[in-house]
Amino acid sequence: MGQVRRYSRLYWLFLPQRLKILMEYRANFLIGAASTVSEQAAGLLMVWVVMRQIPNLAGWSFYETPSGLRPGGAGKVHQSHVCRQLVDHWA
């Protein structure tokens, strides 16, 4: 338990330093932040487009799937199962 506390404290000491490094070049920081926000928005838009066509996908509604369907998401829905549902729907 002592190791966890120690590394947690170190993490919070290094985090502000990392943020200072990232913000050293303002344009790079703003471009990186904007690209992260746009990537998240594009992922949610993709889920919204799919769920508009198929309101109930593998038993999940739109509000239950955003992190599961996005590429790289770690949600509740296994992506291969979702793909199978999409293929069955369009077949």
Rank of each mutant, 00 (worst) to 15 (best):
Met1Cys: 03
Gln3Glu: 08
Val4Trp: 07
Arg5Thr: 07
Arg5Leu: 04
Arg5Gly: 03
Arg6Lys: 15
Tyr7Leu: 06
Ser8Leu: 04
Ser8His: 09
Ser8Arg: 10
Ser8Val: 01
Ser8Cys: 03
Arg9His: 11
Arg9Ser: 10
Leu10Cys: 04
Leu10Arg: 08
Tyr11Ile: 03
Tyr11Glu: 09
Tyr11Gln: 09
Tyr11Phe: 14
Trp12Ala: 08
Trp12Asp: 13
Trp12Gly: 05
Phe14Ala: 12
Leu15Tyr: 15
Leu15Phe: 14
Pro16Cys: 05
Gln17Met: 04
Gln17Arg: 06
Arg18Leu: 14
Arg18Thr: 09
Arg18Lys: 14
Ile21Cys: 02
Leu22Met: 08
Met23Leu: 01
Met23Phe: 02
Glu24Ile: 00
Glu24Tyr: 03
Tyr25His: 15
Arg26Val: 02
Arg26Asn: 06
Ala27Gln: 06
Ala27Met: 04
Ala27Tyr: 04
Asn28Glu: 14
Asn28Pro: 00
Asn28Ser: 13
Leu30Asp: 02
Leu30Tyr: 01
Ile31Met: 13
Ile31Leu: 12
Ile31Thr: 12
Ile31Pro: 00
Gly32Ser: 10
Gly32Phe: 07
Ala33Val: 01
Ala34His: 08
Ser35Leu: 04
Val37His: 14
Ser38Gln: 10
Glu39Thr: 12
Gln40Val: 08
Ala42Thr: 11
Ala42Cys: 09
Ala42Pro: 00
Ala42Gly: 09
Ala42Met: 11
Ala42Leu: 12
Gly43Phe: 02
Gly43Thr: 01
Leu44Cys: 10
Leu44Lys: 15
Leu45Cys: 09
Leu45Arg: 14
Met46Asp: 11
Met46Gly: 14
Val47Thr: 11
Trp48Gly: 13
Val49Cys: 06
Met51Glu: 08
Met51Pro: 00
Met51Ser: 08
Arg52Ile: 05
Arg52Phe: 15
Arg52Ser: 15
Arg52Tyr: 14
Gln53Asp: 14
Ile54Gly: 08
Ile54Glu: 08
Ile54Cys: 05
Pro55Ile: 03
Pro55Ser: 06
Asn56Thr: 10
Asn56Ile: 07
Asn56Tyr: 13
Ala58Trp: 08
Ala58Asp: 13
Gly59Gln: 06
Ser61Gly: 12
Phe62Thr: 01
Phe62Arg: 02
Tyr63Phe: 15
Tyr63Asn: 15
Tyr63Thr: 14
Glu64Ala: 11
Glu64His: 11
Glu64Phe: 06
Pro66Gln: 05
Pro66Ser: 03
Ser67Gly: 00
Ser67Gln: 05
Gly68Ile: 00
Leu69Glu: 02
Arg70Asp: 04
Arg70Asn: 05
Arg70Glu: 10
Arg70Lys: 10
Pro71Ser: 12
Pro71Tyr: 10
Pro71Thr: 11
Pro71Leu: 05
Gly73Ser: 02
Gly73Trp: 01
Gly75Val: 00
Gly75Met: 00
Gly75Tyr: 02
Lys76His: 13
Lys76Ala: 13
Val77Phe: 07
Val77Trp: 06
His78Arg: 15
His78Val: 12
His78Asp: 15
Gln79Met: 05
Ser80Thr: 07
Ser80Gly: 02
His81Gln: 14
Val82Pro: 02
Val82Thr: 10
Cys83Val: 12
Cys83Asn: 10
Arg84Ile: 01
Arg84Ser: 06
Gln85Asp: 09
Gln85Tyr: 06
Gln85Cys: 08
Leu86Phe: 05
Leu86Ile: 10
Leu86Met: 13
Val87Glu: 03
Val87Pro: 00
Val87Arg: 01
Val87Trp: 02
His89Phe: 15
His89Gln: 04
Trp90Pro: 00
Ala91Gln: 13
Ala91Arg: 14
Ala91His: 11
